[in-house]
Lab assay of single mutants.
Amino acid sequence: ENVVSAPMPGKVLRVLVRVGDRVRVGQGLLVLEAMKMENEIPSPRDGVVKRILVKEGEIVDTGQPLIELG
């Protein structure tokens, strides 16, 4: 699984990683606000951040690609 998608609609509050960062399974990639709750979106696997597909403040839909892992 190379693309991390939004599990719910919401607003991207914070991106916690940068392109080139090594991440571990379960590590927070970004914080999504949904229904006034902050939800940290975890990495599904170990890898390297290849691309960040959203910006802070952006509104996303369920299933929208957020981050690509390499």
Rank of each mutant, 00 (worst) to 15 (best):
T62H: 14
L13R: 05
L53H: 14
V31M: 04
G10H: 12
T62G: 07
G63W: 05
V4K: 05
E56A: 04
A34M: 06
V17M: 09
K36V: 11
G28Q: 08
E38M: 07
P42S: 07
L29M: 10
I41P: 08
E56Y: 03
N39F: 14
R22P: 04
L16V: 03
R51E: 13
R22E: 04
R18T: 04
N2P: 03
L32H: 14
K11M: 13
D21L: 02
Q64H: 14
D21N: 02
R24F: 05
V23C: 01
D21P: 02
L66M: 11
E33L: 07
E33A: 14
D61M: 08
G28L: 13
S5R: 01
Q64N: 07
D46S: 04
P65E: 14
V49M: 11
E1V: 00
V54H: 07
E40M: 10
D21R: 02
L69I: 13
Q64K: 05
E40R: 02
S5W: 02
V15S: 08
L66D: 00
P44Q: 15
G10R: 04
N2M: 06
M37N: 06
M8C: 01
M35C: 01
M37G: 05
N2V: 03
I52G: 05
G47Y: 00
A6G: 04
L32V: 10
K55F: 13
L53I: 07
L69G: 09
D61E: 13
V49W: 00
L13I: 08
I52N: 11
L13T: 13
L16R: 09
M35L: 09
I67R: 00
K36I: 06
I59V: 12
E68D: 02
P42G: 12
E38T: 10
G63Q: 02
A6W: 10
P9V: 09
I41S: 09
P7L: 14
L13H: 12
V15E: 03
E1Y: 00
D21E: 03
V23R: 05
D61I: 07
L69P: 04
P42W: 13
E68L: 02
M37I: 06
L66P: 00
I41D: 00
V17C: 01
V17D: 06
V60F: 11
G28F: 05
P7Q: 07
I59Q: 14
R14E: 13
I59C: 01
K55L: 15
A6Y: 14
V15F: 08
G57N: 12
L29Q: 10
E1Q: 00
Q64V: 11
G47R: 02
V12F: 05
V12Y: 02
G10Y: 14
A34S: 10
V31L: 13
V49K: 00
V48D: 15
L13Y: 08
L32A: 07
G28C: 01
G70F: 13
R18E: 07
A6D: 09
V19E: 15
P65F: 09
L66S: 05
G57A: 07
K11G: 09
Q27L: 06
V17G: 11
L13C: 01
L29N: 04
K36A: 08
R24N: 07
D21H: 00
P44R: 02
G57L: 08
L32C: 00
E38P: 09
